[in-house]
């Protein structure tokens, strides 16, 4: 094998080992596996922000669509061209077509959605639909 991963296992600290096991069994702070691409959702009373890690794709190859409360991300991550005499030693990166729909907590103003893509990270700002925004109600004094 041409490649070996460096891992120094000569000394095992029992406390560290305990922490590792503890982390393995408690799923509270860790992230479970999900379908590609992984998404984070941020919310306040009149905005939602969706961030997603989609490395190795050009921004023009990502399709974003919004209908009511759902946001859909579509695209294709291409495989490296491989000829007969070339071989993979490791293949861990996912490739292929993806389509992922995220349910948002409120309807959004589809015309005002903003998206940017930097360093393989997609950043979408979705303003809440005007008619759904919480309103402050004035109390009239008689």
């Amino acid at each position: 094998m041409l490649w070996t991963e460096f891992n120094n296992n000569t000394f095992v600290d029992p406390w560290r080992e305990f922490e590792r096991l503890n982390r393995m069994f408690s799923r509270v702070s860790s992230h479970r596996s999900c379908e590609f691409p992984a998404v984070n959702l941020w919310v306040d009373s009149d905005h939602a922000v969706v961030t997603s890690e989609i490395p190795g794709i050009s921004p023009e190859d990502i399709e974003i669509s919004v209908v009511g409360k759902s946001l859909t991300l579509r695209g294709t991550r291409r495989v490296e061209d491989i000829r007969d005499n070339e071989a993979y030693h490791r293949r861990e990166r996912w490739n292929g077509q993806f389509s992922k729909t995220i349910e948002l907590p409120f309807n959004v103003e589809a015309g005002k959605v903003n998206a940017s893509f930097k360093k393989g990270v997609l950043y979408i700002t979705l303003p809440r639909a005007e008619e759904e925004k919480p309103r402050k109600i004035d109390i009239k004094s008689e």
Partner: peptide, 8 residues
């Protein structure tokens, strides 16, 4: 904003 759903 606050993080409400986190996959990564």
């Amino acid at each position: 904003l606050r993080l409400t759903e986190s996959e990564y």
